[in-house]
Design a protein around this nucleic acid. Structure first.
Lengths: 235, 235
DNA sequence: GGAAAAGCAAGAGCAGTGCTCTCGTTATGG
DNA sequence: CCATAACGAGAGCACTGCTCTTGCTTTTCC
């Protein structure tokens, strides 16, 4: 919780060593996550740190709280990676593809952390409020690439959507992209789902026995499809 | 394993009661899955059945094997549901949409079973060979709807794909849809990923605070997009 | 038909888990 | 300087998957 926000200028020695310890626990937990999967053992983490398992509870009230911290970090880092990659590009399609590839690269490098945030939710685990902010990082980043294309006139004109679900998208469009139609929000979410699905199902092994070579190329094929469905075609 | 294939004419009494017991264990396990999530407790299942936990191991060699049986059943039933729904339709787009909605309806009715097959893989669990057959049921069903459209000339002409990944799709096209181009396989897999992603991320809560009403309509919007990306538009 | 073999259920037990509580120790702040 | 709060360690509880042994029942084979 409060540990996820970097403590500014930990004045006392105790506060500083606490912050270090918290970070160290998360680091070791991430390593265990990478090797053993999602069923993270608090005791094993404590063993690796040479401390009693009960001591970990001074830093995280429960295993779920530790998972929450890892989830928030994961959402943040993958969002950062996409943002960074998009910043290096000039065209709208370039930003879109770069961000998508950055997300995929991150997922391939940190498969279990990706599974933690875009796989099935941990049973019994209820995502606290702290996660919803970081959770939208990547979505907003992908929407940003589309919004820039829209404002530059690079987005093909879209027919207005019909359906009961359209109305509720209006306030969202107003909040994040004032002036853009609700269809823009629908396209963004749909494209975001394509992105996450393409990464997840490659990662979860659904491409086995079909696409074994040049998965990156197949991913780009899908992401160009997704961009086109949102009206973004030319460069 | 062998329990998943329905034993034909269980001649001896013992074989019949064994088949019944196996089915009963799976039923109770499914109930626990629905209430408690993916961390299924063999002991709790045994308790519910009024038997010792060790007795369950007469029927399933391990918890993973029980999970495998549930996974195979899940793949099969969702594939059946899609096939059934498509059979009631006449047009290609109708079949496509009906199968997609059937898959979504099944997922909404059995969220934890969906998560079992399309969520993050259970850590340490290695899917045995038995699962890959049933796992392709839904994919093949969705491909079937597209293939019929192709053969009826309802599919828009597609530009041939470029990319290193295309070549490996040729034998797959030859095997399942002789005469159809490799691009058809790429479109099918991409559409299938869109289907699974749309369902999973609705189920996993990614639509929270954005699409709260008429999620069915938003899903259909995505599935029409997916069909269009594969060249299937009219009716 | 009866003996041997195979299938079955139950219980004890092992190593591991998340989590709680208590008890000394150590740093912090009034 | 000293009361207080934070801390680490250990024991312990209830639970887990899984194994092994021990009796019992059903099937199979001679």
């Amino acid at each position: 919780m409060s540990e996820s926000a970097p403590a500014r200028t930990p004045r006392t020695l105790r506060a500083r060593v606490r912050a270090e310890m918290t970070e160290e626990i998360k680091t070791v937990a991430r390593q265990h996550l990478a090797s053993d999967g999602a069923n993270l053992s608090l005791r094993a983490v404590a063993r690796d740190l040479g401390m009693a398992s009960s001591a970990v509870y001074r830093y995280f009230a429960s295993r779920d709280e530790l998972l929450t911290a890892l989830i928030i970090d994961a959402y943040t880092t993958v969002g950062d990676a996409a943002e960074q990659a998009a910043a290096d590009e000039t065209t709208a399609l370039g930003k879109w593809l770069a961000a998508a590839h950055a997300a995929r690269d991150w997922a391939l490098a940190n498969p279990h952390e990706w599974a933690l945030i875009y796989g099935s939710p941990v049973p019994g685990y209820q995502a606290p409020q702290d996660t919803i902010g970081p959770a939208t990082r990547l979505l907003l980043q992908m929407g940003q690439a589309l919004a820039e294309a829209y404002q530059q006139g690079d987005l093909a004109p879209r027919e207005p959507l019909t359906g009961d679900f359209v109305a509720q998208l209006e306030p969202i469009a107003e909040q994040f992209h004032p002036g853009l139609p609700p269809r823009f929000v629908a396209d963004t979410i749909a494209a975001y789902f394509q992105l996450c699905g393409a990464i997840s199902y490659e990662l979860f092994g659904q491409l086995k026995n079909s696409v074994e070579v040049d998965r990156r190329g197949f991913f780009e094929f899908q992401m160009r499809n997704a961009a086109a469905a949102a009206g973004l075609t030319s460069r």
